[in-house]
Amino acid sequence: MTMRQTFLLICFATLIPLALEPNGYYIRILTLALLFAALGQAWNIVGGLAGQMSLGHAAFFGLGAYTSTLLLIHFGISPWIGMLAGGVLGGIAAFLLSLPTMRLKGHYFALGTLAFAEVFRVIANTWSSLTGGPVGLSVPFSEPSLAMLQFNETRSYYYLMLAAFVAVSMIFVIIVQGRLGYRLRAVKEGPDAAEVIGVNTTRVKIHAAVISGSLTAMLGTLYAQLNFFFDPDTVFGALQISIRIALIVIVGGIGTLFGPLLGALLIIPLEEFANVMLADRAAGLSQLTYGALLMAIVLLQPQGLAEFAKKLAARISGKVMSSKTEART
């Protein structure tokens, strides 16, 4: 995709809310999808570029949500600063997690990171004096303002999440094109060969993990500000956060720039509609339908939606080209 196309896409995304009710149901789903697209892009740095299937990103996400919210509740500190503090803590947590999981591969890495996030969930549930325990935390609402990262309309949050997605994607692109990106791909495709030609594989993996963890924590703050309420299971939950993020990127196209966006735009609405339409028909029917649809997508398009979109675009432009040549002859 060229610069111009990307620019047009962002313009289009900016105009979408004008067609929707500013506090309506659809813009809320899109806002959530953009947040998860940003989370997917942050995860993509570790999962896509380094090829490490993290199932523990909820740890960083929840850390970010709790850090900024607790700072706001107890000290009245702006969530912007809370977000930075959460980002630092998320980076530190990612660094500490990297030390023991560094040498793990494939399923073992996934299990190790999954366990790490579960520890956070259990701590948040039991350390009630700090976290409020299973009851959760409510973000105090003062007045709508950008400084306090609080708004009346979902539309404002939509733009916030759009900006977050664009920012994380830009960081992703910078990494891909720079030294770190080349080294990460080498680590992913042949760690021994990478070492022998001078790549410090340990350091490269830690760098990726820290950037990814830090960004994920910052997005946790945005989630808290959007929802105004969360409990340990919603921000530290494996299914709610960790697996959902990984799934979005896998369905969308792992390691690709537009994979997380495509995956989020498919999965978040799909979850929502399966819930709304089928939840009261029979117990578990919505989950069953959702699961079946996901399996169908993964089976039909194992390379991810980004690859499918690329092929589709190539076919369309191919047809245009051939019809042009036909017209000429």
Partner: peptide, 17 residues
């Protein structure tokens, strides 16, 4: 043990980093 998903140039380039 080349990095199979990368181009020839990118494979060699990584050594130069």
């Amino acid at each position: 043990s080349l990095f199979a998903g990368s181009s020839v140039l990118d494979n060699v380039l990584i050594g130069g980093l």
